[in-house]
């Protein structure tokens, strides 16, 4: 008999449900805030939940084969795995000596999962979207890596829990000048990770009609919505842990996540979209220069 740790399992499920609900709430806040900035009333804050419910209630789903079905599930699983590596209010299911790297790359896997599914649909828009997505990912790797290197050099550890604990003692990362630069770089990359405005070239609705998502509908789209909710929660939590000193309870974490989210929303609602080449050029210029300065300062 293997002893089953029921408490741990329940905690993990609880965190998952909490993450999905808060993720949906964040998506709703995103839409509402954008509407308010455009002087509209906007949808109710629980609108993404209704949307997901409606997508689940659709009576048919187009499938283009096994890989097409597998893509969204793969993406959802990767997001959940990333979530379980992040210390959320003293709870962390998995931990290793290098969680920082694990989380940083698990957070990018979902995009690959969606692309995998999208490519198998054979829609030309999906193919274009995937091409753009891969280019953005390649472009943002360099500043992303630099920001993380600066962070690791300063705190001298790869463990997320230790980074959070050190920040509790010595002050948040953003109070250190070098890490403030890293924060700026990370925030620019974060915008692309969320797929928000200056870098929403992957899903660009007016150009390539949702890009990779164009063929997904019904239950597949519902899974993708859930995945996006988990992803949003995980990314904002990761940000809060790295730069805003982590959190010892869910409320503090929620407030910090909200702060991070609102920066992203404000930036997104005033900037138009970059073209693909502009985005790549931008990523390899300013964030990279700032990132290199940050790394040099922390040596």
């Amino acid at each position: 008999m293997v002893a089953v740790d029921w408490k741990l399992i329940l905690e993990a499920i609880g965190i998952l449900i909490y993450a999905i609900l808060v993720g949906f709430l964040f998506m709703g806040i995103e839409r509402k805030a954008m509407a308010r900035i455009q002087r509209r009333v906007g949808p109710p804050i629980y609108q993404p939940l209704i949307d997901t419910l409606k997508l689940l209630g659709k009576k048919e789903s187009i499938s283009h084969g096994f890989i097409y079905d597998f893509g969204p599930i793969f993406a959802l699983a990767a997001s959940i795995a990333a979530l379980l590596f992040i210390p959320i209010a003293n709870f962390q299911l998995f931990s290793s000596n290098a969680d920082l790297i694990v989380v940083a790359y698990l957070l990018e896997v979902p995009m690959l999962g969606i692309m995998l599914g999208a490519m198998s649909s054979g829609n030309p828009f999906s193919a274009l979207g995937v091409q753009r997505g891969l280019l953005t990912m390649v472009a943002m790797q360099l500043p992303y890596g630099l920001a993380l290197i600066a962070l690791v050099q300063h705190w001298g550890t790869f463990k997320l829990t230790e980074i959070a604990a050190l920040q509790q003692v010595q002050g948040w990362s953003i109070t250190v000048p070098a890490l403030l630069l890293a924060f700026i770089v990370f925030d620019i990359v974060f915008q692309a990770m969320l797929g928000l405005e200056p870098f929403d070239i992957i899903t660009a609705p007016a150009e390539i009609s949702m890009g990779p998502m164009v063929e997904y509908g019904g239950k597949h789209a519902a899974i993708l919505f859930t995945q996006h909710a988990v992803q949003l929660f995980a990314e904002t939590a990761f940000f809060a842990v790295l730069f805003l000193g982590g959190a010892s309870n869910l409320l503090t974490l929620f407030l910090k996540q909200l702060a991070v989210l609102f920066i992203a929303i404000f930036v997104a609602s005033i900037y138009p979209r970059f073209t693909v080449d502009q985005a790549a050029k931008f990523f390899w210029k300013w964030p990279t220069i700032i990132g290199i300065i940050a790394v040099l300062l922390t040596v």
Binding site: V41, P43, M213
Partner: peptide, 19 residues
Amino acid sequence: TARYDYERFGIMPNPSPRM
């Protein structure tokens, strides 16, 4: 847009017919 704003009712333009 701001005057009538159909997003109040959750209506959203969507470029993809599948959704």
